[in-house]
Design a protein around this nucleic acid. Structure first.
Lengths: 232, 232
DNA sequence: CTACAACCATGTTTTATAGCACAAAAGTAG
DNA sequence: CTACTTTTGTGCTATAAAACATGGTTGTAG
């Protein structure tokens, strides 16, 4: 399924908090089994229905996790940034993937066979704790999201997405959001049509909350944006 | 916060799959620390913002987990039936509760201090695995739900809720769904206003998909209901 | 039994948002 | 450079669903 190029990297000695908790033997096991895979812009990483086999860690780039809805209206469920783990839910739930993962931009992913991860988990409570924590946080986010996406109005939903992007990817020196999304992706994040994303973005510009230059979004009045996000 | 009456029950020797995996010492620990708490109809079990301290297991009754939305429009996130564990997400995520839990009908809940659970988890991989699995499944459901609630039309959403109730609580001999909800709860489950829940329920009746007698819902054409749920 | 509250039902109005059509701009390939 | 596709922008229309209004029904407390 995944053709890996066989860079074996010593990521397990890196800073990633999780693997710090391993002993030397466990690290060795990881080193032997980890592989790096590179993805081009817009390349599929996994597809709904695929059998999950590997834990993935985004080393470089940006990835979106989304679900296909009716009539081409996709819903972005989660966005991954370095260094974040993903693709484990389906395996743990003993299901196929329910989502699609696509690289937003050229990305590098570290793949670790789930069997290896499970082996380590058996003897290492800290790794279990990591996944339990991660899943719990994500479940909370998902619950919040359900309510926000269903109950907030368009302005609130778009503002929320922008705030989310700010918090996830940060701002450059000139207050530009550090990720460049197509209007369509912005719409898919915010549960609205592309037209409405464009329209609403325009009104935000005219209200001097943001400035837009192509896909660059510069945040002018972050406070107001957060307010709209909260109350919208 | 929870005044427990101190029935100490021997539930840990019961059939619940999870605790089968404990050794005698761990069971003893549970027996000593578990307590049963009874809740009346419509009584709050926990509230958003509360500090999570206990793992809860619904022994008897029915419980709804919901989030308060804007303008009194609540969204039911999850429904609990016996014997199901709940209330652990917030603790594992190291957050306060993000949701409210209320007993739909007179219910009994077994409370186990999270500290005790954690103690057992440290030495028992199976319990960790149980929570990881449960969280993973729930996260998958939450993701599905987000898309369904945002993209399906009213008919589809209500049909989906009815199917969910059938699958969760089952049908009596005469095909009556085994839980009696107010129209408002049905609406809160399906992300719509109460009026629209009533209206749509009526059209289902006129289409001979269901029959309604007060809060009793009798399923006449389950296949059609599932079809509407899927395609709606 | 009566009064009051909660719940259920249905019709009408309003509004937010999807859907569509079309044009301009930008990006891409030959 | 030119042709072609994709993305962005904008106005108009259609419509699903909320909001509102009103009345009936059922349940409950005194």
């Amino acid at each position: 399924m995944h053709e890996k190029d066989e860079d074996i990297i010593d990521f397990s000695a890196s800073l990633t908090d999780v693997w710090r908790l391993l002993n030397e033997q466990e690290r060795e096991l990881l080193r032997k089994n980890a592989a790096i895979q590179h993805y081009k812009k817009n390349q599929q990483i996994y597809t709904e229905g695929d059998e999950p086999t590997h834990l993935m860690c985004l080393v470089k780039g940006k990835v979106k996790i989304y679900k296909e809805g009716v009539g081409g209206r996709n819903q972005i469920i989660r966005m991954i940034k370095p260094v974040q783990y993903f693709a484990y839910r389906a395996y743990f739930a003993r299901e196929k993937y329910l989502t699609d993962a696509v690289a937003f931009e050229a990305s590098s992913v570290c793949l670790i066979p789930m069997k290896v991860v499970r082996e380590i988990m058996k003897h290492n409570y800290n790794i279990c704790k990591f996944f339990i924590r991660q899943l719990s946080v994500d479940l909370g986010i998902a619950d919040e999201r359900t309510v926000n996406l269903t109950q907030k109005h368009i302005r609130g939903r778009l503002a929320e997405s922008l705030v989310f992007l700010i918090d996830s990817y940060g701002l450059e020196d000139d207050a530009t959001i550090n990720i460049y999304l197509a209007r369509e992706d912005l719409a898919n994040l915010s549960n609205m049509t592309t037209s409405n994303a464009i329209r609403t973005l325009s009104t935000f510009v005219s209200e001097k909350i943001i400035a837009v230059d192509g896909r660059k979004i510069k945040v002018i009045d972050e406070e107001k944006l957060r307010k709209i996000s909260k109350l919208g």
